[in-house]
Simulated scan of single mutants.
Amino acid sequence: MKDRDHTVSRRGFLKFGAYGLLAVPVAGLGWSTQAKAMERLDEDSAEAQALDYVHDAANADHPSYEEGQVCDNCDLWTDPTAEDWGPCAVFPGKLVAAGGWCSAWVG
């Protein structure tokens, strides 16, 4: 009788492990779609204006701006797979333009 109980718990453990392995890719889908659900940062918002953020770096009018600095080559750009718009550590919950710029740019 003990052998049967032990076999059932082993089977349960293996089933639970299989479900866990299946859950990992499904959980990853939620993380990858999170960035798509975020809103784009508005240039006129207080947070964007505080850091002189612009959607197009060519329009940056700030003394610390240097040609070639854009959001997608900044160390604060948090998703290297993002193309036109992506998340930035400075503006949590918002997307910034890949070709944008702000005074928090770090290279």
Rank of each mutant, 00 (worst) to 15 (best):
V90F: 01
M38G: 09
L76W: 07
Y19F: 13
P25E: 02
P63M: 03
R10L: 13
W101V: 00
Q49H: 01
G68I: 00
S9W: 12
E67A: 00
L76F: 13
L22V: 15
T78L: 10
D75E: 11
L41E: 02
A58K: 15
C102H: 07
S9C: 15
A98W: 10
R10P: 06
A97S: 11
W77L: 07
S32W: 11
A27W: 03
S9A: 13
T81S: 15
C74W: 06
E83A: 12
A58R: 12
V26I: 14
A37C: 10
D72K: 11
T7W: 07
W85E: 04
A98L: 07
E39L: 10
A27K: 00
P25G: 00
G28W: 10
V106R: 15
D3F: 08
A98G: 14
V54R: 00
V90W: 08
L22Y: 03
Q34C: 04
G30N: 14
D3V: 05
V8M: 15
W31A: 08
L21Q: 04
V96D: 02
P87S: 11
T33L: 14
G99E: 08
S64Q: 15
T33M: 12
A104D: 10
L41P: 01
Y65L: 04
S32H: 04
L21Y: 01
E47N: 05
V70T: 08
D44Q: 05
P87Q: 11
P87Y: 08
E83R: 14
Q69C: 09
L95Q: 08
R4S: 01
T78A: 13
D5F: 11
A57H: 06
L41M: 00
D42I: 00
R4M: 01
Q49P: 07
S45C: 01
V26R: 09
S9V: 15
C88E: 01
G107Y: 06
A18L: 13
A82H: 02
D72E: 12
F13K: 05
Y65V: 06
G99V: 03
T78I: 10
N59T: 12
T78H: 13
W77C: 01
R11A: 15
G86S: 02
H62A: 13
S64W: 15
K36Y: 04
H62D: 10
F16P: 08
K2D: 13
D75M: 13
D44L: 04
G28R: 04
C88M: 03
S9D: 14
K15P: 14
H6W: 13
W77N: 12
P92D: 12
L21E: 00
R11K: 03
E43K: 08
A35C: 05
P92N: 10
D52G: 11
G17T: 02
D75H: 14
D44V: 07
C74K: 06
A18H: 06
S64Y: 06
G12H: 03
